[in-house]
Design a protein around this nucleic acid. Sequence first.
DNA 1: CCAGAATGCGAGCGACCGCTCGTGTTTGTC
DNA 2: GACAAACACGAGCGGTCGCTCGCATTCTGG
Lengths: 231, 231
Amino acid sequence: MPDSPEKQAPESQGQDEQQEQPPRRRQARGERRIIQLLEAAATVFSTTGYTAASTNAIAREAGVSPGTLYQFFPNKEAIAIELGDRLMHEMRDTYGEALAPIDPVTPLEEAVGAAVERFIDFNCQHPVFFALMHGPDVPGRITEAHDALHSTLHSRIEGLLSSFLPDASPADLTRTAHMCLGMYKAGLELALAHEGAEREAYVQELKNALVRYLDPLVGERLGRPDATTTA
Amino acid sequence: MPDSPEKQAPESQGQDEQQEQPPRRRQARGERRIIQLLEAAATVFSTTGYTAASTNAIAREAGVSPGTLYQFFPNKEAIAIELGDRLMHEMRDTYGEALAPIDPVTPLEEAVGAAVERFIDFNCQHPVFFALMHGPDVPGRITEAHDALHSTLHSRIEGLLSSFLPDASPADLTRTAHMCLGMYKAGLELALAHEGAEREAYVQELKNALVRYLDPLVGERLGRPDATTTA
DNA sequence: CCAGAATGCGAGCGACCGCTCGTGTTTGTC
DNA sequence: GACAAACACGAGCGGTCGCTCGCATTCTGG
């Protein structure tokens, strides 16, 4: 691993906020190559992890030469970053504000079930996402993106919880939210490790675990009409 | 990374079960060096992970030369294996049969609490253990040890569950046990990420999550006297 | 005390990795 | 058709890594 060279043109600093783009015109062929390379990278990353994946392997998987790969990406990290950005974008497009709005009258089961369902679905359709987000070896920028997503989810959960539990201490709220995220991650891992009906069963099990974990906390809330049908 | 050479003397196979030891006599100094090297390896592994840890770094951390390291370990993997073996041994020594016996009259809270407490404690005192066991990049033999431990824990949990739930389907039992292990792992990660009182709070939260997850399943059991005090 | 084994050293080998560069091919524009 | 820019190639550069090897030093048994 050579140290990241970090050689950038000094740029005109200070008064021009768009700092690059020596007008790099892409042809249609180039755009196709980029997609091809990103797909290859997704395959290699999700099978071997980020650090173990070699750029030569990605190029080989895409059926091009190493030089061609570096025609479109300045370095290995940029590939992962671009891949992560596109996944993040696709997630927001697909599920829109699904991870944002919280309807306080929604029953707990429904809220948990919907959120779990959506995120598990996305991860099943894009296994790279899990490899990049929960991989232990990914470098700086990806980790930043991961942390950003993580803290977004965390504060969403915290918000949901505080709407259910307005009188809980912030520390308890944070802990509970972290625990929920941890359980979600564990369930995701189990779901990804299985397929078909078995996967569905694990998703259901994750929902059960989350609801049962949270239910006692919100139990004293004003009445949910049917509290008996749990399983 | 060079391909693992895998050059072993053919050995006399078949009728002699102790297959090696060209009588390698160790001096006291050597034993000390081995412990020194293993401690250095523990430090390096737990800070950088297995693959990212370089043997030269381990030797440097131990204050010896690379050659000296290879006087005592045939390769990098062997260091991790020896380290893992000693940890496993120490775990069994420390907690003895604590992970074995299941007293069916023990209340659920107590059983879960005791098991969680013990394992969390061990992991807090030996952070390497987590790095080696749940690290994503560790090679063959370590993964085998991990899988062995994992399936041991899994079958213990399955046994406990089946004693509580004699009429549940095997598939459900397996799933529930996997879910418990996943939740434990998530809680362990959270506990390791904090210290002192906050860590204790996460341990308690993990116990809560597990008990609440399992309680509805064993709820129809013959009476535990006080079923109301949950928190 | 001394032969030989165990221990210790560190330059360096071979393999692989991320990445570059000189060169050749394709594509768009006039 | 001419020219430049974008695209493609692949040998190979500089680097690190796991690990070796020849040689010096220290310990141990007879």
